[in-house]
């Protein structure tokens, strides 16, 4: 069971990262990554919604008729989204102001519906809930990666609070900031480069494991060839 949980997390965060690998949920990835704090807030909201929606959809999976399942999933998801929205409005007004309409728009985030359809509707409640947390963590990780680059290059600071105060000055006070990274164009640009970097890393890792395999394969092939030649020698 324990290794299973680890595998689920590895799958959700790295191997099947919803943003970098499955390319889902692009709207919040682009819109809410102007600052790391906003990205964390969005990620936390998605983790909570995904956890509870996966849990409840899994509990109800034998009751919901197949024909109306998508509509039922959307109702369940939007219930939790509304709850999260009200909590954020009440306790974190600065995050609410920064994220704006993207909190209610979690309802139509394809990641949540995709996990409901692909995982929670087929699995038991406990693994479904863990899957929700793992996928949400993967989403948060991707958001924070993009937000880190955008905030660092855009303002020269990192971890500033949602209203733009505080934060760790990385490049010193003289850095004027590159506002393009905070604009929509910078969002597309940064995400493009981050995904390119992820693809590059993935291909390097792929090649390395493949090299290992081909090395082993050629070794065995050599061995077989040696055996064959040995046999031939014996024949003659």
């Amino acid at each position: 069971m324990k290794s299973n949980v680890g595998k689920q997390f590895k799958d959700g965060v790295i191997a099947n990262n919803p943003v970098f690998v499955q390319l889902l949920g692009m709207c919040p990835t682009l819109a809410t990554t102007t600052a790391v704090v906003n990205a964390l807030g969005m990620g936390a909201a998605v983790i909570v919604v995904l956890m509870f929606s996966n849990l409840f959809i899994s509990l109800l999976r034998k009751i919901i008729p197949k024909q109306v399942r998508i509509a039922s999933y959307i109702v369940i998801i939007s219930g939790f989204v509304t709850a999260v929205e009200l909590i954020i409005k009440a306790f974190f007004p600065s995050i609410d102001a920064a994220l704006g309409l993207f909190i209610p728009l979690i309802v139509v985030n394809c990641i949540i519906l995709a996990r409901a359809e692909a995982f929670a509707s087929k699995n038991r409640p406990m693994p479904s809930m863990i899957d929700g947390i793992a996928t949400g963590a993967g989403f948060t990780f991707a958001l924070v990666c993009v937000a880190f680059v955008r905030e660092l290059l855009g303002t020269g600071k990192i971890f500033a609070s949602a209203d733009g105060t505080g934060g760790l000055s990385v490049f010193g006070g003289g850095y004027p900031g590159a506002p393009i990274f905070l604009l929509p164009a910078g969002a597309f640009l940064t995400l493009g480069f981050v995904i390119a970097a992820v693809q590059k890393i993935a291909s390097v890792i792929d090649k390395r494991s493949q090299n290992k395999k081909t090395a082993e394969a050629s070794e065995t092939a050599c061995g077989v060839a040696r055996d064959l030649s040995y046999n031939e020698d014996e024949d003659t």
């Binding site: 604009l183 929509p184 164009a185 910078g186 597309f188 640009l189 493009g192 995904i195 693809q199």
Partner: peptide
């Protein structure tokens, strides 16, 4: 495009250029 940019990343960069025009 370079191998790492093939597929999705290069699309996003093209979209960034379009977004710049719209900004």
């Amino acid at each position: 495009p370079p191998k790492a940019f093939r597929g999705f990343p290069i699309l996003l960069i093209a979209a960034a250029l379009a977004a710049m025009a719209f900004s």
